[in-house]
Design a binder for these strands. Structure first.
Lengths: 105, 105
DNA sequence: GAATAGTGCAACTATGTGGTTGCAGTATTC
DNA sequence: GAATACTGCAACCACATAGTTGCACTATTC
């Protein structure tokens, strides 16, 4: 049970390049160097993004020989999604209640 | 059906102050000035945050007399959550398949 | 063991943005 | 209609960060 706070996860997801990297990893594990071949940024830039993503638990890394291979963690994304959904539903529920009261019912 | 792209929504959610504002609005509609009373930042800072949130469809504004009152849109949050969940599930599914193949099954 | 392919670290740049102050504009209320 | 609350706009500051280059380090491969 990764009890990461939500906001940093969103901050990590809120960058186009980082999102592209996640999508690329969704098609299969890859190293920073391999990813650098597919994007118009340097390997180091990608390495920084991967560090951010790993920090918030969206990816994990595994050493394979002389390369560091990254794997996307869909479960963390799903957990974040569920938390989001609960919050959104709660807001709608509460505001609907306020509206009912305001209408004098 | 708000077909906003995901990344800007995450970027909007990825700021502590903005998240706090959303949470506050979750307890009931409020204007920028009213919110400014509850947070350690100026009204203008809050107004900027509200503009960002409105831009990505997380809140909407309604003129009430001489004040602009903001309302949180839980539905947009829930929709974002569902999109996230689907993506996360898809990644896990695909990577599990790759793993199965790698294991020669 | 020499060449190679990959990662790690540091310094630096530039742009974005969260925050501020100050003032003008616009509805209310008395 | 004058005082009062709000909002709206603009300029500005400071810090975070996405990106770069350059080089050292480490593990393969031949």
């Amino acid at each position: 049970m990764t009890t990461t706070t939500l906001v940093p996860v969103f901050a990590a997801l809120g960058d186009e390049t980082r999102w592209s990297i996640l999508v690329a990893l969704g098609e299969g594990d890859a190293s920073a160097s391999a990813l650098a071949g597919r994007f118009p940024v340097t390997r180091q830039a990608i390495a920084k993004h991967l560090a951010v993503l790993e920090e918030v638990g969206l990816v994990e890394s595994v050493r394979v020989g002389r390369e560091l291979r990254y794997r996307v963690l869909g479960a963390q994304l799903s957990e974040t999604a569920q938390r989001l959904d609960r919050i959104g539903a709660e807001w709608d529920r509460r505001l609907a209640a306020i509206k009912r009261i305001a209408e004098g019912l």
